[in-house]
Nucleic acid binder design. Structure first.
Lengths: 204, 204
DNA sequence: TAGATTGTTAATCGATTAACAATC
DNA sequence: TAGATTGTTAATCGATTAACAATC
């Protein structure tokens, strides 16, 4: 229902995996909230939205909760994702350990620079021209855009035409909202500028 | 006043720099909103919060707007930032072109792995033990945490003790809110999981 | 002047939190 | 049973949008 509550489910899941590893079996909404940085009411509300229930008085069974969240967040099957842009950021994301561990696989990276192509690598780096073909052949739904701003719109158009349904955008460009494509933006630079603003001492 | 509106100011600024480059001098709230992906009312409201005014009927003069935003966002002086964690992500952020271009300088990167240290590099990679000393010597206020989750709390404690005032956190750990430290979280994995959720076809 | 756009106030919308009845 | 915690509804809070008077 709510975009933010889905991301919080991811966060709860991460906390629960850690607690599970530490040998805990049960948890209460207030403990889970504390670990995830939200209120107990928020936790229960989020669970209620997705029909997740616990035991009055007994809290939640961690293993059951993880199983339920795995279903909701599609963790039972591997989701294949591609990256466009084999620069520093694209390459870092290619090997991001948090993805593989949680059923997200980077299937390939695409770039226009011929010197960056390496078809035989663990995660292949392929020419951008092949992206449509690859998407169709591998049934890819989600792409990460990690190219310079100037190339963003062109890449977006290509991906959209290729039938991509979701995009994680690391550029500062905005794309016209489209029925068929969901775009989540990660504005790294703006996050840092935000921090600069809020940590600057206010002039007296 | 509002956290999100500060980030939108960054976004407006980015759009304006681009339009300025293209030779435009004036802009209206609806055009700027469209470029930044928000409504015209949002643009005017944000400007109103920060006391930015334009001309009834004549819109805004782009150069003036950029100057005003540069002041608010502290773009007149270079802000020095450090990164903790010289893994793939830390190294990618070290060379992120968007930072330098907008008066953000990565002064140094810190890591516990001795094989990663390189004191003579363009951006030096130093042992984590030296971080407190470095922060004090260079008057650093802001740090980026790009370490594995297990190390996050320890790094946070060290940074807090060293007097850091703002943290951009790339781990999935949450830190207890503190009067003295502002924390912005970038949950890369959760953003992707969010996309997976919203692009998955709903079961019939 | 007529027309268009800002700046701000009021209305709406949505998300978070508080509160408490249900119940284990 | 008494006590504690869930699940949900209602209250609150905050942010976005609509509307329109001011004015260039």
């Amino acid at each position: 229902m709510n975009k933010k509550s889905v991301s919080r489910l991811s966060h709860y899941r991460k906390v629960l995996l850690r607690l599970n590893e530490l040998g805990f079996d049960r948890i209460f909404s207030d403990t889970l909230g504390e670990e995830a940085g939200v209120t107990a009411a928020q936790v229960r509300k989020d669970f209620s939205i997705f029909g997740i229930s616990g035991n009055k008085r007994g809290g939640y069974i961690i293993a059951d909760l993880i199983a339920r969240l795995d279903d909701i967040l599609k963790k039972r099957t591997v989701t294949r994702v591609i990256i466009v842009g084999a620069g520093n950021l694209g390459k870092a994301l290619m090997h991001y350990p948090g993805f593989r561990r949680d059923s997200i696989e980077i299937s390939a990276v695409f770039d226009i620079d011929p010197t960056k192509i390496s078809r035989k690598a663990d995660v292949p780096v392929l020419p951008l021209e092949e992206v449509g073909e690859f998407i169709a052949a591998h049934g890819i739904d989600i792409a990460i855009i990690a190219v310079p701003d100037v190339a963003a719109q062109r890449v977006f158009d290509i991906l959209q035409r290729a039938g991509i349904r979701g995009i994680l955008n690391f550029t500062t460009m905005t794309f016209k909202d489209n029925e068929d494509v969901v775009v989540n933006n990660v504005y790294l630079q703006f996050e840092l500028e935000n921090l600069i603003y809020f940590t600057a001492e206010k002039p007296a």
